Amino acid sequence: MQFKLIINGKTLKGEITLEAVDAAEAEKKFKQYANDNGIDGEWTYDDATKTFTVTE
């Protein structure tokens, strides 16, 4: 399945997509990506659109 991450950071904004088996795997990958890029914020997930959002 394809999942999307919307980044609303203080210095980094944008979207990325990835393939994952389920939402838990996608969340783990997205949070690792955010951590690697210094993004720390409030996370939400919309199951209907398979979209994660992180807002700093």
Rank of each mutant, 00 (worst) to 15 (best):
M1C: 04
M1K: 05
M1Q: 13
M1H: 09
M1P: 10
M1Y: 08
Q2E: 11
Q2N: 15
Q2I: 04
Q2D: 03
Q2Y: 10
F3H: 06
F3K: 00
F3G: 00
F3L: 01
K4M: 07
K4E: 08
K4A: 06
K4Y: 07
K4G: 04
K4V: 13
L5G: 03
L5E: 00
L5C: 04
L5V: 02
L5Q: 00
I6V: 12
I6T: 02
I6F: 15
I6A: 03
I6D: 03
I6C: 02
I7D: 01
I7H: 14
I7E: 01
I7A: 14
I7K: 01
I7F: 11
I7T: 05
I7C: 02
N8C: 03
N8Y: 05
N8E: 05
N8I: 14
N8K: 11
G9Q: 11
G9S: 13
G9T: 05
G9V: 08
K10F: 06
K10A: 07
K10M: 13
K10R: 04
K10P: 12
T11D: 15
T11V: 10
L12H: 10
L12M: 08
L12V: 13
L12A: 06
L12Y: 14
L12E: 05
L12D: 11
K13I: 12
K13P: 09
K13L: 15
K13V: 13
K13T: 11
K13Y: 06
K13R: 08
K13W: 08
G14D: 03
G14E: 12
G14F: 14
G14S: 10
E15F: 03
E15P: 04
E15Q: 05
E15C: 03
E15H: 03
I16W: 10
I16A: 14
I16P: 01
I16K: 13
I16C: 03
T17H: 13
T17E: 08
L18F: 07
L18K: 12
L18V: 12
L18N: 07
L18M: 09
E19V: 13
E19D: 02
E19C: 04
E19N: 05
E19H: 15
A20E: 15
A20C: 03
A20Y: 05
A20G: 14
A20I: 03
A20Q: 06
A20P: 01
V21R: 10
V21L: 07
V21H: 10
V21C: 05
V21A: 14
V21D: 09
V21Q: 13
V21P: 14
V21W: 04
D22R: 07
D22P: 01
D22Y: 15
D22I: 09
A23V: 10
A23T: 12
A23P: 05
A23F: 06
A23G: 05
A23K: 15
A24P: 07
A24G: 15
A24S: 04
A24L: 07
E25K: 12
E25M: 13
E25Q: 10
E25R: 08
E25H: 15
E25S: 08
A26H: 00
A26L: 00
A26Y: 00
A26R: 00
A26N: 00
A26G: 09
A26M: 02
A26D: 00
E27P: 00
E27Y: 09
K28A: 14
K28F: 11
K28T: 09
K28I: 15
K28E: 09
K29M: 08
K29S: 10
K29F: 15
F30D: 00
F30G: 07
F30R: 00
K31N: 10
K31C: 02
K31F: 09
K31T: 06
Q32V: 12
Q32M: 12
Q32N: 14
Q32S: 07
Q32K: 15
Q32I: 10
Y33K: 06
Y33A: 14
Y33F: 05
Y33T: 04
A34V: 08
A34I: 09
A34G: 14
A34S: 07
A34E: 02
N35G: 15
N35S: 11
N35P: 01
D36K: 09
D36I: 14
D36E: 03
D36V: 15
N37D: 07
N37Q: 11
N37R: 07
N37C: 03
N37L: 11
G38D: 10
G38W: 07
G38Q: 08
G38K: 10
G38H: 07
I39W: 06
I39S: 02
I39C: 03
I39N: 02
D40Y: 11
D40T: 11
D40L: 08
D40M: 08
D40H: 11
G41F: 02
G41L: 01
G41T: 01
G41V: 01
E42F: 15
E42S: 13
E42P: 04
E42R: 08
W43E: 00
W43V: 01
W43Q: 01
W43C: 01
W43M: 07
T44Q: 12
T44Y: 15
T44D: 15
Y45H: 05
Y45P: 00
D46T: 11
D46F: 13
D46Y: 11
D47H: 09
D47P: 15
D47F: 03
D47S: 12
D47L: 10
A48L: 10
A48F: 15
A48Q: 07
A48E: 10
A48C: 03
T49Y: 12
T49W: 12
T49V: 15
T49M: 15
T49H: 11
T49F: 09
K50F: 15
K50N: 11
K50D: 10
K50T: 05
T51L: 08
T51W: 12
T51Y: 13
T51I: 11
F52M: 04
F52D: 00
F52T: 02
F52I: 02
T53V: 10
T53F: 02
V54L: 07
V54T: 13
V54G: 00
V54R: 00
T55Y: 04
T55P: 01
T55E: 13
T55I: 08
T55M: 05
E56G: 02
E56S: 02
E56M: 11
E56F: 05
E56K: 02
E56L: 04
